[in-house]
Design a protein around this nucleic acid. Structure first.
Lengths: 206, 206
DNA sequence: TTATAATATGAGTGTTCGCTCACGTTTTCA
DNA sequence: TGAAAACGTGAGCGAACACTCATATTATAA
């Protein structure tokens, strides 16, 4: 049996300098994960990179997994914000165009910080606090579902939930695989076009 | 800089008992990975579970990553064999049927040993010997590409390589995500049907 | 039979890790 | 201004780790 892992901060940082330290620690976590991957990352290393003593780290986080969980949450929120605003911008425009914007957003998201994104995605299943962890991912799926629901009249979709799930994860995963196996693909317009074709044909957009 | 990691066996097991021990070690590696995940797995633990001394382990594998690499190769070969035979069985049948068989095969593959599959897939980007590691995955993609090429006249596909890549990874990844977030989906026929719809509509199968 | 190559063992070595705790510093606020 | 609360520090402890090596056992083949 895998023991349950603590992922909650021990103390809430109240003063400004403490909040800054917490952010520093998350920045360092990101850097170490990018550089060394998950299992070569250690709390000592993270504290050193952050320029923060190991004691301070343990004042706010009970361990490595908590740091990663918090980082996933922060990163997820940032990406979600970007996704939300992009979707908001084009919500009323023709469907084909919306799809293109969404796909481009996904690609852009991964291109920005692909190494970190990969490591975090890999760790999501392991970090205990799945409710929080999947929040941003689930929220994105919810936004897609809502959108599909709103314009269902223009689409050929029976099960909205399932369609949203499939659109969300097929796009995300293909982009993710592309990063791992052939990062050049992300730069090619043909790749984005094919992804759009995948979505539009599936949703029945003419 | 991430240092290069040795993933090659030190000695080839020549006698039968040695080959059996190597298989025992790989079995144990699978079990420990399933049970504890990658970063909680240790060479000592694997040796204990295998009922093999730690010294013997290091006679054939230079470390944990080598074990995992070898396991990925073995597992990949097994899955590829299953995939190959399924595809061979239905190669000449109508396209919609072929798609259904492929999709079912993917779902079956993941249902068989989902925990192990997840851990291994997560580790693929980290294990050094990518040529070998991606071999089975790449071989599966190649098979799909070949199949699409053979029957391109019946399909609406421009870039065969890209189409194979997208089909392969969208299906695999959606199934993969489903395991992580909602394993019940794998049991539902509606899920398999939607995946088939994704592929058939994308490839332009009527 | 016997020499030699292959295989197997696990206590032991040095390293790294997670994490605590006793103590010093800064901030808050009455 | 002074006391209390919040914050920060890093040496160091015990546990877990990767990996070695001297030694013992088994297989091969001349």
């Amino acid at each position: 049996m895998t023991g349950q892992v603590a992922t909650k901060p021990r103390k809430k940082p109240q003063q400004e300098r403490a909040q800054k330290r917490v952010q520093l620690l998350l920045d360092a976590t990101a850097e170490v994960l990018r550089e060394h991957g998950y299992d070569r990352a250690s709390t000592n290393k993270i504290a050193t990179v952050a320029g923060v003593s190991i004691g301070s780290l343990y004042q706010y986080f009970p361990g490595k997994e908590a740091l990663v969980a918090a980082l996933i949450e922060r990163q997820g929120q940032r990406e979600l914000d970007l996704f939300k605003s992009k979707l908001g911008e084009v919500q009323q425009r023709p469907l084909a165009e919306v799809v293109q914007v969404i796909v481009d957003a996904f690609i852009e998201l991964h291109r920005m910080d692909s190494r970190l994104h990969s490591v975090l995605v890999e760790q999501i299943p392991r970090v205990g606090d799945l409710q929080k962890v999947e929040q941003s991912d689930g929220e994105a799926t919810r936004l897609i579902r809502e959108f599909i629901g709103n314009r269902q009249a223009e689409l050929d979709v029976s099960d909205v939930d399932l369609a949203a799930f499939i659109v969300m994860h097929s796009v995300e995963a293909v982009v993710h695989q592309a990063i791992l196996q052939n990062p050049d693909l992300l730069e090619q317009q043909a790749f984005a076009d094919e992804l759009c074709a995948l979505v539009t044909s599936y949703l029945g957009i003419r």
